[in-house]
Computed example of a mutant assay.
Amino acid sequence: YGDEVRVLTLGRALTPESVLGNKPYSVELCGGTHVARTGDIALFKIVQETGIAAGVRRVEALTGEAARLYVEGQARVARGLARDFKVQPADVTARVEALQTSVRTLEKQVAELKKQLALSGSLGGSSGGNAAPEEINGVKLIARVLDGVDGKGLRGVAEDFRKQVGSGVVALIGVTDGKAAVTVAVTADTIGKVNAADLARAAVIAMGGQGAGGKPDFAQGGAPDGSLAEAGLDAVRATLKG
């Protein structure tokens, strides 16, 4: 801008005069206008708002014919969803929310079912269905490969197995979509002998991952190659042997 800057004002504040003194609600520095009056803009539709810096927002909008076409496109989407859901367009949002709630409920049920199958030995990989603990260097170990169980699902299974083992270590590797999730849980009386994070890290590295994180009693990690799940459990055994 030069020494003199054009200033445009727009409208009057809708709030009581005692608040803003009936001042314009928009005051802008402008190098030049693109329309003779605001009515020429016609429809104005904000389509995106993003943060570009601290305290600075970027607003993108469409006007005129482009805005009209955008709104029509959104309306077509709403009508299509209403047709598929067999509801009125105004009820689409409620229908989507109901479906999301139903999906979350089903996901919880599936997770619980997988957990029960894992505990019963019916959901096993190459480790088989035998959940009886083995003993290494005086430490009991339950080591299992569970097909179709992700890291989130492993947490609950590990907690239940930790109760079953009483004193010792639980090492679980879940395999989903070719990838592996590792969970290691250690009972309180065993922490002085072994560290869950060390065991999980050894398993993850053996399967081509970078490492794992957690606490001495509970740790998790992930690896890219689920086919190496048994190698991961063998790494846990080797770490326990010292």
Rank of each mutant, 00 (worst) to 15 (best):
R6S: 15
L123M: 07
G55M: 10
Q116E: 12
G31W: 09
E135I: 07
G121D: 01
A223M: 02
L29C: 11
F44L: 06
D150Y: 10
G11P: 08
R144K: 13
V56R: 15
Y25K: 04
S126L: 08
A197D: 13
D234F: 09
S26A: 15
L119I: 01
G11E: 14
A238S: 12
G232L: 01
P133N: 09
A212F: 07
A143L: 12
A54E: 15
Q88A: 13
K86C: 09
T9V: 09
A78V: 14
V7W: 08
A67C: 11
A132K: 14
G21M: 03
K114F: 09
R58I: 06
K115S: 06
K45E: 14
L10K: 12
V139K: 08
G32P: 08
K193G: 08
V186T: 05
G128Y: 01
A188K: 13
P216M: 10
V184A: 01
I142Q: 01
A196G: 01
K86D: 12
A94P: 06
R144M: 09
S127A: 08
Q100G: 12
I173M: 06
D217P: 10
S122Y: 11
V170D: 03
G242W: 08
A13E: 13
D189A: 04
G213D: 02
V184S: 06
V47T: 04
G168P: 00
L14Q: 14
L233V: 01
G64W: 00
F44W: 12
V110C: 05
V110G: 10
A36C: 10
T101E: 13
A212V: 02
A231N: 15
L10A: 12
M207C: 00
G64L: 00
A53V: 01
V59G: 06
P133Q: 10
D150T: 01
G55D: 10
V175W: 00
G125N: 05
N137I: 13
A118N: 04
D40I: 05
P24F: 07
D160I: 11
P89Y: 02
Q109I: 11
R37G: 11
T63N: 02
E159H: 03
G64T: 04
T9F: 06
V184P: 07
R76G: 07
K163Y: 11
G226Y: 02
S227W: 03
V170W: 02
T15Q: 14
A238N: 07
G55P: 04
G73A: 08
L43C: 05
D198S: 14
L62M: 06
L141H: 00
V149R: 03
V47M: 04
G222Q: 10
R58Y: 04
A212R: 00
V194Y: 04
P133H: 01
Q220N: 11
A180D: 03
V157H: 05
G221F: 03
T183S: 11
L233D: 02
V165K: 00
V139A: 00
D234C: 07
R104W: 11
T38I: 15
L62H: 03
S122T: 05
L154C: 04
G232C: 00
S126R: 08
G192A: 04
A196Q: 02
G51H: 08
S26N: 13
V182T: 01
V194H: 02
G174L: 07
G31A: 09
A158C: 11
